[in-house]
Amino acid sequence: MKFAKSLVAVLAMAGFCLGAAPFAGAADQGPVKIGVYLPLTGQNAFGGQLELDGVRLAHKEMPKVLGRDVELVVVDNKSDKVEAGNAVKRLIERDNVSAIIGTYGSSLALAGGEVAEKGKTPAVGTSCTNPLVTMGKKYYFRVCYIDPWQGAAAATYVYNNLGFKKAGILMDMTNDYAVGLASFFKRSFKKLGGEIVADLKYSSGDQDFTAQLTELIKQKPDVVFMPAYFAEGAIIMKQARELGATFRLMGADAMDNPDTVKLGGKAVEGFLHTTFPYDAKMPNMSAEAKKFTEVWYAANPGKDPNVNAALGYNAYYLILDAITRANSDKPQAITEALAKTKNLSTPLGSLSINATHDAEMPVGIIEYRNGQRVYLTEVTPK
């Protein structure tokens, strides 16, 4: 069957399975079960809930596949590694799902991924960017880029676009996501010709960053890269400005949250972070991005779509496309179809799954101006 190249085509296939004969007696086979494990409580709950909103929006648009209803089985992984593994185990062994969506957070995906591998059930990560999530995995995929790509893009932007030659690092040493991103930024920045003048650390849950920020001010970097989650990142920004720091601060995709401005206040002015290539106000929006934006606002009046919602939407969309091409809801068939995904048009651009089960795409750059989140441009790493 010719592979779908547009959202319209996939929507049609989801309902009517064009190009492949639907199962005989499909209605008698019961629903196709898709599991969802996301952090709906705990540290990462806001991001997890946004991704679930995107999954549910896609499910509302595409409620059937192969002539059968799709049933979402949602489990809260509670922002906890052990709970993430237990959630995937439950979805496979108790709920008998055909495929799994999730999760937000690389450390959670690493824990859940081991269980998915043992259970031979395909899973599609949403915003888990650590390369180890899919490394050596047969059944784990993702709709996001990976941290080497993101870290290199951040370094490329500050060195080439902003002309910054000296950088500092401030990272959570207890978080896989932060450690990985900081490492990839440092490697790329130095390769471009930049100098790392300070490399400082903190632990998850810390509230006072005065000592680290004071040292950073002393070392006089042009920019400080801090791959933090939005709550801690907002605190760092506020304390940096209170101490009189003049360096620019740059974060990564975990800072892409509507509450960043709310928590950081005036301290977010000039803050930069990488993001996935979607924004409700981005220039030159594709047809698929326009469609997603329209259906989001129709379902959520007055609430702007966040890129995490687009990632959740994409994960559901990708799985249904794989099921349709495989003409099967069997985990092995879906796994094989996912691995063959090429040039699928989505709100985040053309999506192909590469040999390591990752999605490669440009990296967006956000800057905060006058209390507003502004999508500046896209960067391809050097």
Results as ranks from 00 to 15, higher is better:
D147F: 06
A27M: 13
D80K: 04
R142D: 04
L91G: 06
L91P: 02
L66R: 10
I100Y: 01
G125N: 10
G54E: 08
L91A: 07
N96W: 13
A116W: 00
Q43I: 15
V32A: 04
Y139K: 00
K33N: 09
T156I: 08
T126S: 09
D80G: 04
T134G: 03
P63A: 11
P148M: 09
P131H: 01
P39L: 09
K81A: 14
I34A: 07
K89A: 15
A109T: 12
T41A: 09
A84H: 00
E114S: 11
A58C: 09
V74D: 11
Y104A: 13
G151S: 09
T134D: 02
G54M: 08
V143M: 06
L91K: 03
A99M: 05
D147Q: 09
G105D: 07
A109H: 05
Q29I: 10
L132F: 07
V70K: 01
V74Y: 07
L52C: 11
V115A: 03
A45R: 10
S79K: 05
K137L: 04
D147W: 01
I101F: 02
M135A: 12
G136V: 10
Y157S: 03
G85V: 05
I34R: 01
G47F: 11
G54N: 05
A58Y: 04
G35A: 11
L72P: 03
K137S: 09
I100T: 02
G113Y: 01
A123C: 12
V133F: 02
A111S: 09
V55H: 00
S79Y: 02
P148H: 06
A123K: 10
E93H: 12
K64F: 09
T41S: 11
L72A: 06
G136S: 03
L50D: 05
A111M: 01
P31Q: 09
D76R: 07
